[in-house]
Design a binder for these strands. Sequence first.
DNA 1: AAAACCGAACGAACTAGTTCGTTTTATGTG
DNA 2: CACATAAAACGAACTAGTTCGTTCGGTTTT
Lengths: 199, 199
Amino acid sequence: MPRNGADPRTRILNAARTEFATYGLAGARIDRIAKSASASKERLYAYYSDKKQLFLEVLELNLREFASDAVLTDHDVPAFAGALFDHAVQHGDHLRMIDWARLETDGTWLPALEVMLGYRDEQVRRIRLAQAAGRVDASWEPAQLMTLVFGIASAWVHEPGVVLTNSGGSDSVAIAARRANVIRAIERLIAPSAEPAIN
Amino acid sequence: MPRNGADPRTRILNAARTEFATYGLAGARIDRIAKSASASKERLYAYYSDKKQLFLEVLELNLREFASDAVLTDHDVPAFAGALFDHAVQHGDHLRMIDWARLETDGTWLPALEVMLGYRDEQVRRIRLAQAAGRVDASWEPAQLMTLVFGIASAWVHEPGVVLTNSGGSDSVAIAARRANVIRAIERLIAPSAEPAIN
DNA sequence: AAAACCGAACGAACTAGTTCGTTTTATGTG
DNA sequence: CACATAAAACGAACTAGTTCGTTCGGTTTT
């Protein structure tokens, strides 16, 4: 855990990332972060004013990486969903942080999430383009479809049974199967057809 | 909040339900529960040995209500998804509790979740029946489809953008639109023989 | 009278954040 | 290269506040 050649500031930030992702804002321990970063609390508070601010810094960082990692390109929504799924698998921390932020929040903070909103709106815009290109059924309301894609890509992260028991396994075979199911689900969702209209 | 004519034990349990759903295990305050239940801490610890045990009691109760509320019947998976969605809307607490339990857990507890596993397995079995009845595409692996249905039905609960900002509104019109989208998504998923089964 | 209940106080353990003396590292100068 | 000086970092103790769980005398209910 201590393998961090970087300067204390980054060491602390990295330690905070796993600490907050694991225990949340309330459950995280400042001393544990400092120790795991091989740094002193004195340094921690020299760089970050607050426990909460450090938490928000981590959250924003995660959201930023998330946003730059999974982007809808070439009107290819299934591939986009696949990228979302892969990101969720490889960076489980990011999803956890988002959940922590959602649960531990009064609704009274907007600092980091403009990142998320900008990202979301951009992808929604691209869904609209994919619809114009005939790659996605036009009867979907873009923003709603976006939410569905997110929900499907992260279904295995939030599913109560699998998740609470650690059952279902995390071996690469099972993961590949899930990924294939995600792709297939999305393909079925977006397949253009002669269906009635919306809302 | 304090209007509870019941005996202290149930008053405490009810207060604990909203407290834990709101703040989680670590964030919940015993004094707040007691006060909100118009009971004394002395009574609380007379009935419940532990903060954690009270939390688990609440969780199990929620899972039980959840399991009896949304059941797959008549091979009608879209209706099942609708029921899941409705339950998520009307009992947001239950979903939050599940998320809290997932996040705040080391993986070292099985007390309450046998409820969830039994429920899950039963619904999976019914999906299999729906497939046999030709109402659901047989090429889906039942358990995987189950997870997808859950993910779709609760997509708006977990979607980062909507959820972190409280945007998107919770008016009945928006909710109805979401519900319709859930149904439509499921219908597209399960539609039999959309794929090349050759012949 | 006995049991259930309240209210208030208390102890012990934790924890965020601060302070301060000491040590290490970086930097510049002769 | 040697050396001085300042900034950066460490470590450990300390403050102040919070919170779980307990205890106990008094009050209401049965």
